[in-house]
């Protein structure tokens, strides 16, 4: 099997108030696959996701045990450039938040901060990432209009495109379709299948059904613990753990 992109070794995560969000998680995330982390609310899925690009650094008083390795290197080691890490590991959030600027500036924001100044290069990035997020045809004639004027579904695809414009290696998606209608959801899911050829994708799906639709590798989490993981087609048809079966058949959650 290929080298894992992310390797989590005995990761525990404790909040300031002593609440344990993650308990002794060990997990491999492989490149060019969609890894879906699913489970009921409060299970630590988002916390796990935010550990991978160190967005949890913003929470005061956090306490992390274990190691998180990206391409074999500890991303929590002293001296790691967090900002460069976040460009390598991009993130799309549950609620689309276009920055209060034009569509174009939303897309060039990250690359410009990373030092890309060349106009032609930026234009190319804008077009390529909008095409990859299936938004180009809808916005190509109004790139300089405010991004907030887009519909909800378009905004979420813009946020996906904005992450792609960073040219990341990994894309994290935290319930990216929770606010979208079925047609927009289908568009985003179709994009993911296309994108996994070039990126490593980790998604917290907004439903078990979505997890089953998109997951190459599925991870079931319950109350901060990793209950079971496995290839998507196996985990959803023949789960080993009773709790996994109860959850995917809708007995709780």
């Amino acid at each position: 099997m290929r080298e894992p992109k992310f390797l989590l070794e005995n990761v525990s995560y404790i909040y300031e108030d002593g609440a344990r969000a993650l308990h002794d998680i060990s997990l491999c995330i492989y490149p060019h696959k969609i890894t879906a982390i699913f489970g009921p609310a409060g299970g630590g899925k988002s916390t796990l996701l935010r550990l991978l690009n160190r967005l949890n650094d913003l929470v005061p008083g956090r306490h992390l045990e274990g190691r998180v390795l990206l391409d074999g290197e500890d991303i929590y080691a002293p001296g790691v450039d967090v900002h460069a890490l976040r460009r390598r590991v991009g993130m799309v959030f549950a609620t689309p938040v276009p920055l209060p600027m034009s569509i174009r500036r939303n897309l060039t924001y990250g690359p410009e901060l990373a030092g890309v100044r060349d106009r032609a290069r930026l234009d190319e990035l804008v077009e390529r990432s909008l095409r990859a997020a299936a938004l180009w045809d809808e916005v190509k004639d109004r790139l300089d209009e405010p991004a907030s004027a887009l519909s909800g579904g378009q905004q979420q695809r813009l946020c996906l495109a904005r992450t792609l414009a960073l040219e990341p290696e990994v894309i994290l998606l935290d319930e990216p379709t929770s606010g979208l209608d079925p047609i927009s959801t289908a568009k985003v899911e179709a994009s993911l299948q296309e994108l996994k050829r070039r990126y490593t994708i980790v998604i917290v799906p907004h439903s078990v059904q979505q997890a089953a639709r998109v997951a190459d590798h599925a991870v079931f989490m319950l109350q901060g613990e990793l209950v079971e993981e496995g290839p998507g087609e196996l985990l959803f048809t023949r789960p080993h753990d009773q709790r996994t079966e109860d959850y995917i058949t809708g007995r709780f959650g």
Binding site: H83, G90, F93, V97, Y109, G110, T163, L166
Partner: peptide
């Protein structure tokens, strides 16, 4: 806005 900006490497 702040979280999104930071997540884009700012």
């Amino acid at each position: 806005f702040r979280i999104v900006s930071l997540s884009l490497g700012a």
